[in-house]
Write a protein that binds this DNA or RNA. Structure first.
Length: 759
DNA sequence: GTACGTTCATTTTTT
DNA sequence: ATGAACGTAC
């Protein structure tokens, strides 16, 4: 049993107040680094340990799966594994999927529904456009889908949307919306947004079901409350409306998901919905140095929107000035980052795992990755081209999904002719047309064709397959072969474990051979190894009951996008988007691409609110740093293969110059100053053509040796030392120094800031 | 029906 | 720069 003093250990008065607040509505407004995750975790422990709440009655919602895992880990340490396991912790989406799996029968839906990811959703959308005879060129599937998604986040259904459609575009969306839902329904599939919408609908239409959940989850907690959209807000309200035991934590200044329907006003609504709510402010920052906080605040204070004023403060001291560094282009920017990382690590004060590189768009990660590889620095890229987005993985998953839910038209048409089995475009279209006409899933139509073929075969007198229309027998046989495959896998699913099912399926399909045929032996094997990696993941589900192995696996694959981080990469530099970085912290942070068009992003430039969101994004990124923050931008940047002159971000101008240290231009940036920008423009490829590797990129030309053995030197961190030796390495001076009591270190003179001492 | 070469658009950000 | 979608040749 955990007692109160353990739970409250090390908390400041405000945090303590939040943790110990009487059960009831509590709104915690917490700045970055104020220990909100800590407060949330302790609150759970407090409810259990002091109020005697059964952990089964606690539901904690986080924003990412990563945050969920972290919270569970922390609670395990605080409470012990048994009680921690009894809690329900997860994202809105995973929790809703869970509810629906259990109760969607009330909505007249089968429980083994498929969950469509972004790619699947787009495929459905294209199908919709074809069905409605709309031109893809004229009506961007993405734009229409985005509008539908936005509507769903606002809990607007196709009917309501249609009633309020005023423009031509909205009319089109309204029609697409209705058809889109029909197709999903027919495929027994839900998209991400539906998970929320359907759960809200379930609770709305079946009060008895809602009541059951209200009783089950008498205590609710939600992290990152500022990022909830309307659907999520309503869901929390439904669940909390009985007992009012809801504890939410948020920060207006860190709201960065408006594009997905997040509405900061939900914070205001909280106080309106629960007038008895306690509101607690957490303002002390435990994470960053004052230097870092000042920079972050300088940018956020220029917001157009009025904000509830928070005064962030810290006892961590001034710290090192925030550095601004300009690279010549994105490659040099990345090299400067990688070089600085190498120096920080060589200095001995930091490890790769202490360092993060953050960027606005995933596309920026490529240059970064190359530079890190060149430096041989260990790194992980969070997100990016995800494992589950690879074609071979999606194909493998499509087969598995069909084994669970054969009505899943998107998966079916995905692998209908992969590997090639004689079902061409024509046959596929024919099948789709027939299914469409009969308003049945493709799988059902396949069965119809099979039945008709059999009937025709029985009538020995008339060999002409009249009932099956004009379909040539070759095509029909190919289709029936595929049908047999699907039916066999439906069958095997009943008896085989997930792993065994995969082995059987991939063998039966000829997966490996197909990959080698298509991509050649080498790449084919690479891709096959990816599939085998998927096979390995399946082992984690071996302990579940046979009946739920496949469904649980597929659900987590769809919802746990950051499964890559499951492989808890040990001690590597983290490359991550600003959005994903929320909630994390690192001793050293590099923010790259601080340029107009990138941060703030061009898509947000003309909208005040969007611009504010970009500002908050900067704020989030900057406040991830504990000790050192670097802000980088490039003089020119390539986008879509075209390179353009880049303007430094306006956010840099919002920071008072005395808060920043501008690194002298080095490397290509310096060369470009010498040779003139015009010359640099005339020869944009000079960077690649230059005979120097990133290793040998001379920072500022050959540097003279300035340290000699026996000299006394002083270093900011290591103190007094004596030079052992010094030599030129890659154009920089590498000094080996024996420090008093700290041992022998090798340092780069250009960065270590070694001072000569005395004579 | 398939395989290959050309064109074209593509990039916010996430579950 | 890269990959998907389309057209043409086999």
């Amino acid at each position: 049993m955990t007692d109160a003093s353990t739970i409250l250990d090390g908390l400041n008065p405000a945090q303590r107040q939040a943790v110990t607040a009487a059960p009831g509505p509590v709104l915690v407004l917490a700045g970055p680094g104020s220990g909100k995750t800590r407060v949330l975790t302790r609150r759970v422990a407090y409810l259990i340990g002091v109020h005697g709440v059964d952990p089964h009655h606690i539901l904690a919602v986080t924003f990412t799966n990563k945050a969920a895992r972290e919270m569970r880990d922390r609670l395990e340490k605080l409470l012990g594994p048994g009680e921690a396991a009894a809690l329900t912790v997860g994202t809105f989406h995973s929790i809703c999927a869970r509810f629906l799996r259990r109760d969607s029968i009330h909505l007249g839906r089968e429980r083994d529904f498929a969950i469509y990811d972004t790619d699947d959703q787009l495929r459905v959308m294209k199908r919709v456009l074809r069905d409605l005879n709309l031109d893809e060129k004229k009506h961007a599937p993405r734009a229409i889908h985005a509008a539908i998604s936005r509507a769903k986040n606002e809990l607007i259904d196709p009917d309501a949307y249609s009633r309020h459609a005023h423009s031509y575009f909205e009319e089109v969306v309204a029609r697409c919306f209705a058809r889109y839902q029909e197709l999903l329904r027919g495929a027994n599939a839900l998209d991400f947004d539906d998970l929320l919408v359907e759960t809200v609908r379930l609770f709305e239409e079946h009060p008895a079901v809602l009541e059951r959940y209200q009783e089950r989850y008498g205590f609710l907690l939600a992290d990152e409350y500022q990022d909830t959209n309307r659907a999520q807000y309503v869901l929390l309200k439904q669940l909390a409306s009985r007992h009012h035991n809801i504890f939410v934590v948020g920060d207006e200044d860190q709201s960065v998901y408006a594009f997905r329907g997040a509405d900061i006003r939900n914070i205001l609504s909280f106080e309106r919905d629960y007038p008895e709510a306690q509101v607690i402010l957490l303002e002390q920052n435990y994470r960053s140095t004052q230097a870092i906080l000042d920079v972050a605040q300088a940018v956020i204070n220029r917001s157009a929107q009025r904000r509830r004023d928070k005064r962030l403060w810290t006892r961590n001291g001034e710290g090192v000035l925030v550095q601004v560094i300009e690279g010549y282009d994105q490659d040099e920017e990345a090299q400067l980052v990688a070089g600085e990382i190498a120096r920080l690590i060589a200095g001995g004060a930091y490890q790769p795992g202490d360092i993060a590189i953050m960027y606005r768009t995933n596309a920026q990660s490529r240059a970064i990755e190359e530079a890190l590889i060149a430096r041989q620095a260990p790194y992980i890229i969070v997100g990016g081209t995800r494992f589950y987005e690879r074609k071979e993985i999606k194909d493998a998953l499509a087969y598995l999904r069909l084994a669970l839910n054969p009505f899943d038209d998107i998966s079916l048409s995905r692998v209908l002719n992969w590997p090639a089995r004689g079902i061409g475009q024509r046959t596929q279209e024919d099948l789709e047309r027939r299914a469409g006409a009969a308003a049945v899933p493709l799988y059902v139509m396949l069965h119809t064709l099979a039945a008709n073929a059999e009937a025709a075969a029985d009538q020995t007198t008339s060999p002409a397959p009249a009932r099956t229309g004009e379909m040539p027998s070759r095509a029909r046989n190919a289709l029936l072969g595929f049908l047999t495959l699907i039916d066999e896998s439906l069958d095997r699913r009943q008896t085989l474990s997930l792993g065994a099912l995969m082995d059987w399926l991939f063998e039966r399909v000829g997966f490996r051979e197909a990959l080698r045929r298509e991509y050649g032996d080498e790449e084919g094997d690479d891709r096959w190894n990816n599939v085998m990696e998927l096979r390995n993941v399946a082992e984690q589900y071996a302990d579940l009951p046979l009946a739920s192995q496949l469904s649980t696996f597929l659900e987590e694959v769809a919802l746990v996008s950051d499964i890559d981080t499951l492989q808890e990469e040990r001690n590597a530099v983290t490359c991550i988007t600003l959005h994903q970085a929320k909630g994390l912290e690192f001793p050293v942070v590099f923010l790259v691409g601080l340029e107009e068009g990138l941060l703030p992003h061009a898509r947000s430039a003309d909208d005040r609110d969007a611009l504010d969101e970009e500002r908050r994004l900067f704020y989030v990124g900057a406040t991830r740093a504990k000790e050192r923050l670097y802000l980088l931008h490039a003089f020119r940047r390539a986008t879509y293969g075209r390179t353009e002159i880049a303007t430094p971000s306006r956010f840099l101008h919002d920071i008072p110059p005395d808060l920043l240290q501008r690194a002298p231009k080095r490397g290509y940036a310096a060369a470009q100053m010498v040779t003139g920008r015009a010359a640099a423009l005339r020869n944009p490829r000079r960077n690649q053509a230059a005979p120097v590797s990133p290793h040998s990129a001379a920072p500022d030309g050959p540097r003279a040796i300035s340290f000699f053995a026996g000299q006394k030197v002083h270093h900011a961190q290591f103190g007094e030392g004596i030079v052992v030796s010094s030599k030129l390495v890659e154009g920089d001076e590498e000094v080996t120094v024996a420090f008093v009591g700290k041992g022998v270190k090798r340092l780069l003179a250009s960065f270590a800031n070694l001072q000569h001492v005395g004579e």
